[in-house]
């Protein structure tokens, strides 16, 4: 991480809503107790593997619906899963300049999709629009369509979004985007 980013994280720690830990307990109960105070957990893959706690943390994060980021230099493809709650991300993408900003907004309840934003920055909405278009291209999937629509649509419309609207929004987002 560049120095600005690192000093930013240290500043966040001083503000009291972020903890930077170099050690964690390795027994299941102690680990869960330690993690229970956090809404978002980010852990280096090697540390989890070496401490043999990968499964424990994976299960815990899923059970308690926590945002969970696994970062490592060895991750070859960023993968956002479990309804955007679980992210496998390469360190180069993780340690980006807007990490501090995203975490800060998340801590202040101003960022509902922190992992999506971490992955795509300003293009997070474009990503959802393209996903929505693909669902419609396949013939629609009611549950998924509804979930995405609530994130994309600003009007609160109760009907599926028209393909015209989607195309226009995609063009608009491409113009605004900077990945």
């Amino acid at each position: 991480m560049d120095n600005n980013g690192l000093s930013g994280l240290v500043k966040c720690e001083n503000e009291g809503w972020l903890s930077i830990k170099t050690k964690l307990p390795t027994t299941k109960d102690d680990l869960e107790l330690e993690l229970s105070g956090y809404s978002l957990i980010a852990i280096h893959l090697s540390w989890m593997a070496q401490a043999n706690v990968r499964n424990t943390i994976e299960e815990y994060a899923k059970r308690f619906n926590k945002f969970f980021i696994v970062f490592s230099g060895g991750i070859t493809q960023n993968l956002l899963m479990n309804n955007r709650k679980r992210l496998n991300i390469n360190v180069a993408y993780f340690y980006q300049q807007n990490l501090v900003e995203i975490l800060s907004r998340f801590a202040n309840n101003e960022c509902a999709e922190p992992l999506l934003e971490l992955l795509y920055g300003k293009s997070w909405r474009l990503s959802l629009l393209m996903q929505y278009r693909n669902i419609m291209w396949l013939g629609g999937n009611n549950e998924k369509e509804y979930e995405l629509r609530t994130l994309i649509s600003e009007s609160g419309d109760d009907h599926p979004l028209s393909s015209d609207f989607i195309e226009k929004e995609i063009i608009k987002e491409i113009r605004n985007s900077k990945i």
Binding site: Q77, N78, L79, L80, M81, N82, R84, L116, L119, Y120, L126, S127, M130, Q131, N134
Partner: peptide, 14 residues
Amino acid sequence: YNLSETYTEFSGLR
């Protein structure tokens, strides 16, 4: 184009 959960990963290309 994509084979994973998040569409714009475009993992089909990979």
